[in-house]
Each structure stands twice: as C-alpha cells, then as structure tokens.
Design a protein around this nucleic acid. Structure first.
Lengths: 146, 146
DNA sequence: CGCTTATTGATACTTGGTATCAATAGGGTA
DNA sequence: TACCCTATTGATACCAAGTATCAATAAGCG
C-alpha cells in the first residue's frame, strides 16, 4: 500500500474541521489505519489499539471507523474476508486491486473508471453518483514467487 | 430487470448437474429469485417463500442462497442496504447499476469492463481473476419523475 | 414398495455491530 | 491554574444476520 501518500496529520485536521473533538484514542486509531500494510477490520483495529492502550473500548473503535468512513478517509472493501475491512482512501486512486494471495491492496489510477462512468451514463441514461470497483487476483509479486 | 433473459429451468438444470438433488423448496426459491423485480435478501426470500409454503425453514433459504451464489446463478450486491441482497447473474452484463431511488438494478454490457480489466492488468502487472463493479445513482425513469 | 442418504426445519448458537448510560477528559473561560 | 460544560469514552446489554446441530422428512434407486 502506498503509505507515503497518506498523511495522518491531514486526517486529524479533517476530523477536527468536521466539528469533532480530537482525542488521544482517535489519534491512535488514525495512526493504526493510516499505517497498516493490510486492510483492517474494526475488530482487528481494536486488537491493535489495545496493545498500546488496553482500556480502549470496542464501541469506540466502531464509532471511529464509522466516522472515518463518513469523512471519506477510509473505504470499505467488499468481498474480501466478508465486507468489514477498510483501507485508507486515495481520491485519485479509486480502483482497488486486492491480492487474494498476500492480502495487500493496490491502488490504481481512477481516470479509466471515470471515463467508463461517463460512457455508461451516456449509453444508459442513468445518472451515476457513486461507484465501486474492485479487482481480485494475484499481484505481480505473488505471481513471481509462485 | 431484464427477466426475459433469465430462465428458471436453466437454474434447475444447473443445480441438478452440480450433483445436488432438486427439491420443491429449491424450485420455489429459484422461482422467487429469478422473477423478483428487485434485489432480494435471504430474509426477504424467506418471507416470500413462506407465503406459498409456510413451513419453509430459514436455514434452508440461507443454504439455497449460498448454493445459488456458488453456482454463479445469483450475485451479491454490495453497499445497497448492507451487503445481503442478491440479483440474478447475467454473464454478459456484469456491470450493475442500482437506482438509489427505486431500488431496481439495471445490467450494463460488460465489454467496457473487460477492456478496462485488460488495460489494468497490463499497466499494473497483476493477474485479475475476478472483479466487481457497481454504479449507484438515479435511473433514467426516476430522473424524469423527480 | 422399501432402503439409503441428501435435504429439511426447528432450535440453539456465534459473530459483527449498535444502543445505553454513567464516568471521563477536551478545551474554553475566569 | 482551576473550573465548568459537554462531547467522547468504556462497560455492558442488546440486536440482527448468518451458521451449526440434529432428528425428521423426502428424493431417487433397486
């Protein structure tokens, strides 16, 4: 995952600016999601959070996940170990590839998807306001090591 | 939904040929999914099934949904009232549009998606074995009646 | 028709997620 | 710094979707 393009500071700013208080739990959860190499479920994030902050509550983690998703900072993966895993959002890279072998997500340039949306709107007459595209398969690395 | 292209007989054949016994419950459930105008959850299918066959068990419906999904006869929708609704599969029409106003699914020609997959494989080096594309928005009808 | 075995239905259970509410901690003000 | 107000938190209870269990039932075959 291209962590270098994800800045936890920006997430804190986004949470702050959306009218919420920024707390230490939230900081720790933002850190966990922003730095994870793999998609995380709320349950997994809770486990990790308790390692450094044992009293962290389950509901708090679920609430934070919901908040981050609503703010568009994380994005839910569907069809990979259920539908409860999240990855950081990278607005220009909305086409997600998930490797079924190593579990890592790769972000692909979303311009081709935007083109496809425009084309589909034109053909069907529907007005498309949201889309979800996920690819599954074997990543370049896993193909080599197979 | 283009029901005219879905043939329950073919589904029964598919279930039969995959080594399962074909029973009356299964026939009724296949009918329900193949003829529904809207995406259905297992729970909803159970409700409908009990109207004509009151003793139908909940687990049976969940089992049948699982079987139909594994055989590729129905496909799960994600992000529309959760992730537990299903629509019949139309292999050449794998791009799904779901109207957020009337709830109906429309199937779009999947050739542009196939092209996109090829292009993405070429650029990324990943081997893509499965994909999921869903559009959300307002269908042509609902735009007019708004 | 009767036998064998897959399927079924009732029920209990698990899991992922939500609601409640008293206790806690931000952060603004004096 | 100390105080107050209120959003957030954590513990717990709760809920809903889905799964496991197992005796009863019904396909399909000889």
């Amino acid at each position: 995952m291209p962590n270098n393009t994800i800045n936890p500071e920006d997430w804190l700013t986004a949470v702050d600016e959306s009218g919420f208080r920024v707390t230490t739990v939230q900081e720790s959860l933002i850190d966990i999601f922003a730095h994870s190499e793999y998609p995380l479920s709320a349950e997994q994030a809770w486990e990790i959070a308790r390692q450094s902050r044992p009293k962290t509550g389950r509901a708090t983690v679920y609430r934070m996940v919901e908040k981050l998703e609503k703010l568009g900072l994380i994005r839910r993966l569907h069809g990979y170990q259920g539908c409860s895993h999240f990855v950081p959002t990278l607005p220009e890279l909305m086409m997600l590839f998930i490797c079924l072998s190593c579990g890592r997500a790769d972000y692909l340039d979303s311009q081709p998807l935007n083109d496809l949306i425009q084309q589909s709107e034109h053909i069907s007459g529907h007005h498309i306001t949201d889309s979800r595209l996920q690819f599954f398969g074997a990543c370049a690395d896993c193909q080599q090591n197979a």
